[in-house]
Amino acid sequence: METVVALLSGLLTAAAVWLMLSGNLLRFLFGLLLLSNAVNLAIFAAGRLTEGAPPLLGADGALPGHEMANSLPQALLLTAIVIGFGLFAFALGLTIRAYRSFGHLEIDRMRLAEPEEGEK
């Protein structure tokens, strides 16, 4: 099972890199989204994939019948997903503002802060 998840993570990373190198800010963002999902999958797999019970105590603190799943990678993932969501939403807002200011989303043409020689 880990192999499948690892391959999927690799596939997502490859797609992400392709998108991020395409020179368009919106595509870059989609690539970043895929990349963070690839990383999330990798962390999930790194925490071992088991068929365990949810790591929750029953009534009166009773332990579940069989082996429990490792809850720490899940907690890490949840945190990472939430943070990733916030950052992505901000980046999306920034992209919209960039589009309004420049009228395009081509990264190579965004030279306002670093004008090329002779075009100041």
Binding site: A46, L72, L76, A80, F90, A91, L94, T95, R97, L112
Partner: peptide, 30 residues
């Protein structure tokens, strides 16, 4: 406008570094 341009570069590259850091931390735990 200039600040938006600067922010685009700052945000995108820092997000990549964040993803790398997160991946490294996850693998360390694994």
């Amino acid at each position: 406008k200039k600040a938006i341009d600067g922010a685009v570069k700052y945000v995108t590259l820092n997000l990549i570094s964040t993803v790398l850091f997160l991946c490294a931390a996850g693998l360390t735990y694994g």
